[in-house]
């Protein structure tokens, strides 16, 4: 096997994993702390991409646009929390699913009315548009390296926030026992709003990182949200560590499956059968993984304490 190709694929898998982590971090927090199922998390990812695309056209600078788009997406999250989500915390999961599905329909259609159905490409500055040689023979696009760096930085920031600050302490406490935190006199409403906005900002970051590779497009969030749910279920709901590990796992398995499954199958079956089976199985792979993990560990890999 070609080792430099394998290394490139590992990096590609890591990049996908990191994007998934940025999305799952917010989702697992809202899920873990507020016990709120947010199907519309993917729409915030889409909004991040579109806001960044518009700002890039307006300011001419991707970097500036990206820095502005993160707080703006968080603001969108804040508004959604105040108007809709806040009323639903005490309700059953089913109501969450129904209402946030309604939110998806609204946000997707609004985005289509504002930005048009076609989608917007984001041009990158020249220094991000090239390739770098990581070491001899391993050349990858610069921007993908940036995604990995930014994602790891955000993960480290989140780790510090959750484990070494007072807010983080409240978040962790909330994830294990939210009634108790409320009873201790913590302003739980503000904490919830803050966490929701933080999750929205992270989703926006993921969206604007993806947009220069694919593009900002209507419904892009609905395509990734299910994978994100798979990640947080495998990782264990409410667990940041679980989300990180599961995201990287899914990213790697998905990428490596796509790259090597057909070669693997060709060892045991005819090449024609392999060409048919490999894409089907590689598309199923993450679901298979989830089913197996849940069958063995119904709580996921790293369930948050006392849940």
């Amino acid at each position: 096997m070609d080792t430099s190709l394998l290394f490139i694929q590992l990096l590609n898998g890591m990049q996908l994993g990191i994007l998934l982590f940025l999305l799952s971090a917010g989702l697992t927090l809202t899920f873990g702390i507020m016990d709120f199922v947010n199907l519309s998390h993917g729409s915030l990812y889409m909004l991040g991409a579109f806001i960044c695309a518009s700002l890039t056209q307006l300011t001419g600078s991707f970097i500036l646009a990206a820095l502005l788009a993160i707080p703006l997406t968080a603001l969108c999250g804040l508004i959604i929390e105040l108007v809709v989500v806040r009323q639903l915390y005490s309700r059953h999961h089913l109501d969450h699913v129904l209402a946030t599905f309604g939110l998806i329909l609204c946000l997707d259609t609004l985005a289509e009315m504002i930005w048009g159905p076609a989608g917007i490409a984001i041009p990158l500055p020249a220094f991000l548009n090239g390739q770098v040689e990581v070491f001899s023979g391993v050349v990858i696009p610069t921007f993908r390296l940036l995604i990995i760096t930014v994602g790891l930085t955000a993960a480290a920031g989140l780790y510090l926030l959750v484990n070494h600050t007072k807010i983080g302490m409240l978040i962790r406490a909330g994830a294990s026992n939210r009634t108790m935190v409320g009873a201790l006199g913590v302003d739980i409403k503000t904490l919830f709003t803050g966490v929701f906005a933080l999750g929205a900002g992270l989703a926006g970051l993921a969206g604007l990182l993806v947009a220069p590779i694919a593009e900002a497009s209507i419904g892009m969030g609905n395509e990734i949200i299910i994978t994100t749910f798979v990640v947080i279920i495998i990782g264990g709901i409410g667990s940041m560590k679980g989300a990180f590990i599961a995201a990287l796992l899914i990213g790697l398995i998905d990428t490596l499956g796509r790259s090597y499954l057909d070669d693997l199958f060709k060892l045991i079956m005819s090449s024609e059968a392999a060409e048919t089976a490999a894409p089907a199985i590689s598309a199923m792979l993450i679901y298979l993984l989830m089913a197996v993990i849940l069958a063995i560990r119904p709580q996921g890999l790293f369930p948050a304490a006392s849940r």
């Binding site: 899920f31 199922v37 798979v230 279920i233 709901i237 989830m290 089913a291 849940l294 119904p298 709580q299």
Partner: peptide
Amino acid sequence: GVNFIMITMAF
């Protein structure tokens, strides 16, 4: 709970 929702979706 939610894990049941997701595993049925996976199947």
